[in-house]
């Protein structure tokens, strides 16, 4: 409003020196130049660092869409010389994309849900519903974060291979259950908070529970809500931003986890496991799907350039759902920020 009025004034008396001095005294100039410099600094920094992150992704996209006979040409460094769908078609067939994608996505979603719920319960217990020894147990949560999972590889494998609860299963079926080879072992670990980075989620959520004002929960309890009702209606919505963060992290890490997947439920239907395997055997992978490709493509597998391009296409297909999901979740993040800004507290 005021700037507009000033601008109109400016055009009317352009050469009024007094007016000019009044409007552009040294405080105004200093303030404006500082603001300009900080904006410039922010954009330069963010754009530079953003480039560092995006360059490998761009390289993969470029490799994928470049026609295979144009690979490695000097004049297609930034923009491919010729574009073709061949690499991505081959990758699609190599990964058996639709069915593998469904399998991986569903598993990751189930694991993420189980992990988030388990962590939300445990973290609330640690943050608010303390009992004798919960301080010590929380020390163990930190402990589970620090210990690399590889350490217990052998012992975990053996215990899930011969899974039993105090001999009950053996008494019923005659032998301990073998959970290796199906997703049940992974689900079990996730639901009990041992899965991929399980301890971290408890830690994160506990910190954000503790930042909620305790008086709200007490008020809910005084007004007649039980502990569970207070938890689901008051506490969980209060930490929804952290809850979303945890769910997203859990989903992404379970989707791209190869350690537990290869140890407990190894299958080529798991996209990331298959990607790892295929990248080591690109030549044979391309040879394998030669018959399935449409006839109008020239298939070759000897050149490392082409192997690399198809490997890039595979990687792109694997990370594509994550990126798409991420774009949507990103909107929720921004919304969350704006809502809390409006509410003000």
């Amino acid at each position: 409003m005021t700037t507009k009025a000033l601008k109109v004034d400016n055009t009317a008396s352009r050469f009024n020196k007094e007016d000019f001095k009044k409007r552009y005294n040294k405080h105004v100039i200093r303030k404006r130049s500082m603001a300009f410099l900080s904006t410039l600094f922010r954009y330069v920094l963010l754009i530079t660092l953003g480039f560092v992150i995006l360059k490998p992704v761009y390289d993969i996209v470029k490799q994928t869409i470049t026609a295979q006979n144009a690979l490695g040409m000097g004049n297609s460094v930034w923009i491919p010389n010729a574009v073709s769908r061949q690499s991505i078609l081959e990758a699609w067939l190599i990964l058996d994309y639709p069915s593998s994608l469904l399998y991986s996505l569903i598993n990751a979603a189930v694991l993420a849900f189980l992990q988030t719920m388990c962590a939300a319960f445990a973290a609330y217990s640690f943050a608010r519903l303390k009992f004798k020894g919960s301080g010590l147990l929380f020390g163990f949560v930190v402990f589970t974060i620090i210990v690399p999972p590889q350490s217990m590889m052998l012992a975990q494998y053996i215990s899930l291979r011969n899974f039993d609860i105090f001999g009950i299963i053996e008494a019923i079926t005659g032998s301990p259950a073998n959970l290796i080879g199906s997703m049940w072992a992974n689900y079990l670990l996730a639901a009990t908070g041992v899965g991929v980075k399980g301890g971290l989620y408890v830690y994160l959520l506990r910190q954000s529970y503790r930042q909620l004002p305790v008086s709200i929960e007490e008020a809910a309890y005084v007004d007649g809500a039980g502990f569970l009702k207070t938890f689901f209606k008051i506490v969980l919505p209060g930490v929804s931003s952290t809850l979303l963060t945890v769910a997203v992290l859990s989903f992404v890490w379970n989707y791209s986890d190869t350690y537990y997947a290869s140890l407990l439920s190894s299958t080529t239907r798991n996209l990331c496991l298959n990607l790892q395997f295929v990248q080591g055997n690109m030549r044979w992978a391309i040879m394998d799907i030669e018959d399935k490709m449409p006839l109008d493509y020239m298939i070759s597998w000897d050149s490392p350039m082409i192997q690399n391009a198809v490997a890039s296409a595979c990687a792109l297909l694997v990370i594509l759902p994550l990126i798409i999901m991420y774009v949507f979740v990103q909107k929720r993040f921004v919304q969350g920020v704006e809502r809390s800004g409006l509410g003000g507290e």
């Binding site: 490998p56 992704v57 993969i60 791209s256 990331c272 990607l275 990248q279 080591g280 690109m282 490392p304």
Partner: peptide, 11 residues
């Protein structure tokens, strides 16, 4: 998570 580190043996 290391998905993007492409390691093709021949290359």
């Amino acid at each position: 998570t290391g998905i993007l580190t492409i390691e093709v043996t021949g290359l």
